[in-house]
Computed example of a mutant assay.
Amino acid sequence: MAYPESRPTYSPPKPIYGISGPQAPARYDFNWTVKDDQSGNDYGQQESRDGDNTHGSYQVLLPDGRVENVVYTVNGDSGYVAEVTYQSQAQYPTHQTYTPVPVYV
């Protein structure tokens, strides 16, 4: 059995760059919070954007008992600019030494 001299050729699909048609600038506003006294979770975020300008903040309860607050902006190509502050003082509980007691069955 003889094989044909010409073989099929394959080419990858042509890439599509960009999206055609008019595009509106990004615009949104959202926020969320979590406050659960039983587990100690206390954090949240707020952010809004209008075109190239983004403003937001978030807060989180740190393991040392402080609340970290971050207020940030991104204006065009300026990059992420943040101001970080803390509420309360860090608290470190005294270290308790644990000595396991052997149990024999």
Rank of each mutant, 00 (worst) to 15 (best):
93 P>Q: 01
44 G>Y: 06
51 G>N: 09
20 S>M: 05
31 N>Y: 11
75 N>A: 13
53 N>H: 11
11 S>D: 12
70 V>K: 01
13 P>Y: 03
99 T>I: 10
26 A>V: 14
83 E>S: 14
10 Y>S: 09
17 Y>K: 06
11 S>Q: 15
1 M>V: 12
70 V>F: 00
3 Y>Q: 15
69 N>G: 03
11 S>H: 13
71 V>K: 07
68 E>D: 03
94 T>R: 14
30 F>S: 05
103 V>S: 11
61 L>K: 14
28 Y>E: 01
53 N>Y: 08
19 I>D: 14
70 V>S: 03
7 R>V: 13
89 Q>R: 14
94 T>F: 07
43 Y>G: 00
39 S>Y: 01
50 D>S: 14
101 V>C: 06
91 Q>M: 08
84 V>Q: 06
45 Q>L: 07
84 V>C: 05
75 N>F: 08
55 H>P: 00
78 S>L: 06
6 S>N: 11
54 T>G: 02
6 S>K: 10
3 Y>S: 15
25 P>M: 04
53 N>G: 03
42 D>S: 15
46 Q>Y: 13
26 A>S: 14
49 R>G: 07
86 Y>C: 02
66 R>D: 00
59 Q>L: 10
93 P>S: 02
26 A>T: 15
68 E>I: 03
36 D>M: 11
11 S>A: 15
88 S>T: 08
37 D>W: 03
80 Y>C: 00
51 G>R: 06
7 R>D: 13
89 Q>K: 15
78 S>I: 01
2 A>N: 13
98 Y>Q: 07
3 Y>H: 14
63 P>S: 05
40 G>F: 05
44 G>Q: 07
32 W>P: 04
52 D>I: 07
2 A>I: 09
26 A>N: 11
41 N>D: 15
4 P>M: 05
97 T>H: 09
90 A>Y: 04
65 G>D: 01
50 D>W: 08
72 Y>M: 02
19 I>H: 13
11 S>N: 13
105 V>Q: 14
104 Y>K: 08
8 P>T: 11
2 A>T: 11
11 S>C: 12
20 S>H: 08
86 Y>T: 02
72 Y>C: 04
99 T>F: 03
12 P>L: 05
35 K>G: 02
87 Q>E: 15
14 K>C: 04
63 P>K: 06
81 V>R: 10
34 V>S: 12
67 V>S: 08
41 N>Y: 12
57 S>F: 06
21 G>Q: 03
11 S>G: 14
79 G>L: 01
90 A>M: 04
16 I>R: 15
90 A>L: 05
80 Y>K: 00
33 T>F: 02
50 D>Y: 09
91 Q>S: 09
61 L>P: 01
31 N>R: 10
86 Y>P: 00
96 Q>A: 12
68 E>L: 15
47 E>F: 00
45 Q>W: 01
75 N>C: 05
64 D>T: 07
57 S>K: 12
85 T>Y: 03
69 N>Q: 09
71 V>S: 11
94 T>L: 09
57 S>R: 12
27 R>Y: 13
82 A>E: 12
101 V>W: 00
60 V>E: 07
90 A>F: 03
